[in-house]
Structures are given as C-alpha cells and as structure tokens.
C-alpha cells in the first residue's frame, strides 16, 4: 500500500450514486442504514467533522500516531548525534572546566529538535496520505460541501439495486439525489 490514499480521488470512479443532506442527524441515520444493508459507502464529504461517520463508512484507524512516534525517535537521534558531534567529537570547548560529554544541559535542544521533527514529519505524511497538495485541482461534487451540505457517495456495483439505495437515501432526508458517471453528475 502506498502512502497516498487512492480512495480520496474521484478520477477513477466510473459510476456512483450521490446523496446530498443538510441535516447531520438524518445523514447519520441514512448512512447507518445503508451500511447495515451491506452497501459500501465510498465516502461522505462534510463541511465539518461528523463524529462516528468514519466508522460507518469503514475507514480504518489512522496510523498517524505511529508515524509521529517514528518521527520523534528519528528527530531525537538526529539532534543528539548533532550535539555530540559538535560538542564532543569535532571541537570540544572548555567551558568553566566542565566535562566534555553528554550533560543534562543538552536536554532543551534535544527536546526542541524532537518536537520539530515530529510535527513536520507527521504533517508531511498527513498531507501526502490525504492528497493535500498546493495547486491541486479540487474534486468537489457540490460547491456547498464546504459550507452547509453533506454529500454521500456510493460506488455502484453489478447487481446493486440502485432504486432501493436511492429510496433509502430519500427516506432518510436526502435533499438531492444524483448519478455520477465518468465525472458528470445528473440530478435524479
């Protein structure tokens, strides 16, 4: 598995059903029922984080915390090595006749270096994994999905009863239903 989450791009999606909601509770109920009926929800686009939705769509728990730990260990190692190289190995300085070796006075710089590497390393991974790149083309299904609308997408498969799915969405308060075919949306 590459770092980039390929599920985030709509480029390769051939045919999808799209439901648009304006109410968070109705969306949650609708998404819950769809998932319960065994229909795989591709994604839901919301203007703010809706808690619990990630579990309904079957998103796996992020490994970001592990990446953060890895970056922290790397940062700590790099900074400690740098200080040791500069202060002990390359050019030891006699300061008040203090011993030239690892001392607690290195701790502040070690800590700051660790935090710096963790924050930037983890964020770089976050941007990459989530396809967040400066200047990338926006793949919006609804111009109001960053304002007040919530957009649920289902990738159609052979044998799927599309009418039943659309009815299910409509019954749970979807204000608009659309079909998405090769990048073009049609209001149903």
């Amino acid at each position: 598995m590459g770092i980039l989450d390929k599920k985030l791009s709509l480029r390769d999606r051939k045919k999808m059903l799209v439901g648009v909601w304006e109410d968070e509770d109705q969306l949650m109920a609708g998404a819950g029922e769809l998932a319960h009926a065994g229909i795989h929800i591709h994604d839901v686009y919301t203007p703010y984080p809706v808690h619990g939705l990630d579990r309904i769509i079957g998103a796996r728990r992020s490994k970001l915390a592990r990446i953060a730990f890895f970056c922290a260990v790397t940062g700590l190692t790099l900074v400690t090595t740098m200080i040791w190289y500069m202060s002990v190995h390359d050019w030891p300085m006699n300061i008040g006749n203090k011993p030239v070796r690892f001392t607690p006075s290195w701790a502040p710089v070690m800590f700051e270096g660790t935090v710096l590497c963790t924050a930037f390393g983890m964020s770089f991974f976050f941007f990459w994994r989530n396809r967040l790149v400066h200047g990338i083309k926006n793949e919006l299904l609804d111009i109001r999905q960053t304002d007040d609308r919530m957009v649920l997408t289902i990738e159609t498969t052979d044998g799927m009863d599309e009418k039943a799915v659309l009815d299910m969405m409509k019954n749970h308060g979807a204000v608009e239903l659309r079909a998405f075919h090769n990048g073009v949306q049609t209001v149903l």
């Binding site: 992020s62 935090v115 924050a119 990338i136």
Partner: peptide
Amino acid sequence: GFFSMGWTGSTRTWARYELISLILAGLSTP
C-alpha cells in the same frame, strides 16, 4: 485554491485531521 490544497471535506481526511490536531496539541503543550 492554492492554500486550500484541494480540500474536499472527505470523512477519511476529517478523521486524520482530528487525529493530527490532537497529536500537534499534545506536542505543543510541552
């Protein structure tokens, strides 16, 4: 558009966004 980095509000991204905010908060506190 340049600074929004193609943000769409995907649920997957929101879940990771909340996690990174929490970890960054955990780092920023000390």
